[in-house]
Design a protein around this nucleic acid. Structure first.
Lengths: 217, 217, 217, 217
DNA sequence: TATGAATGAGTCTTCATTCAT
DNA sequence: AATGAATGAAGACTCATTCAT
């Protein structure tokens, strides 16, 4: 998408079609994700991916050596930004962890309304049996990092006195679990969703999370 | 059709294959689930399912007309008991909803330690893009019913005064979400699991769920 | 169909089911012909033949060693009476060949209204590429004999002075061809048929055959 | 799509496969007809058709979506010219119908000496039970048209006074039947054929057809 | 004799991948 | 860089035939 830097341009005088060519890999990956998401990895056909990307089947092989490579590149491409986000969250939220969590949750919920966003985790679930390395990659690079960032936040919150002394892992599950569950319910099972109003969803979820179920004294 | 008389049984020890024939469909479904779980629906080979079931490829077709039918029968077979359980839960827990929930959660967590138990939901997630009817079937017959049963329980609890007046859907998510998330983390991503000690897991999860994150007054 | 002769009965005391069993081969052949005719030899399934004959698939093999054997037995069974008829025709018609021909044609046309009657020739045509021996068998045992019988009749007629001096083979073709053609048109192509009124059909056909196309002087 | 310019052609001698690609569908159909004719539709193997066409099994599917489609395309391709011929015959023969018929018959007989020519009708007969639509297609597009053209010719001949007042359908049968019968005898039953000398065959056939069997007054 | 169960061998069809241009 | 053509390998499904009872 982003045009080459000026420096790069200077080095290699870009022919007319170069710009488009540079975008090709990303276009292909996008098309691949769409097909994988709709049909599953095995049932997706290279032909269809090519068509969706607006090129010929054979052209895909100019950029990726195999269908498997497509999958791997896809995961990798989609994973990088998530990891970065987790870092940011952990760093930024240290001051007011509770508020950071809520803010983050609202943003996350809003993004999850977009079917494309859970496409990758859903895909990972689908292929994890066949390609455990990919599942592991996803675990270590995305989920574990996110859990870690959240745990750090919780710990800070507890140290702060902003939160009760609770099991951090449990809180992380209580934080991620409902969102993950609702996303699956919405996009996989096509159930009527609460994600349509993320603000409200998080409000209600945090009401439970913060104050608990017990009747107040 | 009619079972042999006791006398006949005594004389001729029921033919080896006759005994097995009755069990065949279930054996096949079990084998199919295992293969589907390991390879995914598309990548699973009928030959392997047959081998796993101890019969020939062609023999599968004596019991199921197609691979797809195998999938459907599988889902159906695994779904029935779950729906029943949901009913039972809703009925049995009316007296002491909070306790019922906790009890149920502990049992559920314990069962989720078994990889076979999430095999079906995981499979459904994997094929939902390609076979939306199956996803819908699963939603209405399992997840919606479970949600319904839990919601009823929560409502009773609130009416009881055993719980604070909270959004029931949010509580259901807060209840199911963490378990579902942990199960996926464990069996799909092969992360180190908290499911190994279900008692403790639920203890911690309920500590958060009941009392909330906020420091007590 | 025919019960065993008294002598045979005396030799082997027929159990209750024997009579039915004796009829089995014919029943099977009849069923086989029906299936072969409807689906073609290759596409016909032993299972369907069995069902049509009211027995189990395996039971067929008690009477015929293979599908191919079924075909051969079938042809043979259907061919025998035809050859006999040809003999009879040749013998019986010597006195008044022209009339014999016409009589024979009328009977033949009437029988050809029954789809079963062309089932065998049609089948032979269908498989002749794959089983030339069967085609040859049919040629020598049926068609050649019929042609021979007719030729003899024509020759007699010519010698008689009942007919003009014509090429006998040509007359035979002129005699059989139209009937054969109409039968195929009717039963294979499902065209509207003139076979419904055999009398009239032959009347018209013989009008042409006898008097020719040329305007009378 | 656009053919190369003359200049381009001069420079690069049209790629070997491009030239062939255009001919492929016809080559395949030819191979298919040969196999269908020899083995029958069901028994013919796509692999063999491919081999006969000099390509791989999969390549057939680049041009035809299924074995059935191959059959349909085949029939269609072979039928078109025949229908055209019938039109021509009807039109051209109006002046001297009798002579036109004789001429046409001689040509037809000559062509029928080629086994390939009856391959299609023979195939249609073989599969008509299983695929009645094809039989119907053949009836309406070939046989009915031919019958129609011939009938028109006869009618003209009668009106002309060139022929006696006879039943036209009967004459058509008397015209087509013997040829059809001889072709089947020759190519299906492998009998010794009169088709080797078409001139003579038609001479003899027309002697009967024109003057009839009756001794002249 | 009769059959339900089982299977080996085979066929159509698909598709990721390669090749010639 | 790009693609139309081609294919090898694989998999679902079928069916004539056999077997155990």
């Amino acid at each position: 998408m982003a045009p080459k830097s000026a420096a790069a341009k200077a080095r290699s005088p870009a022919p007319r079609w170069q710009r488009r060519a540079d975008a090709r890999p990303e276009e292909i990956l996008e098309a691949a994700l769409a097909e994988f998401d709709e049909r599953g990895f095995e049932a997706a056909r290279m032909e269809d991916i090519a068509k969706a990307a607006g090129i010929s089947k054979a052209a895909i092989y100019l950029y990726f050596p195999s269908k498997m490579a497509l999958l791997e590149a896809l995961i990798e491409a989609k994973v990088a930004p998530l990891a970065a986000q987790a870092q940011k969250l952990a760093a930024a939220g240290q001051a007011d962890p509770l508020n950071a969590l809520k803010l983050f949750a609202t943003v996350a919920a809003a993004r999850m309304a977009d079917p494309k966003v859970i496409a990758v985790p859903r895909l990972v679930i689908g292929i994890s049996g066949r390609f455990p390395e990919i599942a592991e990659y996803y675990r270590t690079h995305v989920v574990a990092k996110a859990r870690g960032a959240l745990e750090k936040l919780i710990e800070t919150g507890i140290a702060n006195g902003a939160m009760r002394k609770v099991d951090t892992a449990a809180v992380v599950r209580a934080f991620i679990g409902p969102l993950f569950f609702e996303a699956m319910w919405t996009h996989v099972l096509k159930g009527e969703t609460a994600l349509a109003d993320p603000q409200k969803l998080i409000e209600q979820q945090f009401d439970v999370l913060l104050h608990g179920l017990e009747p107040r004294a």
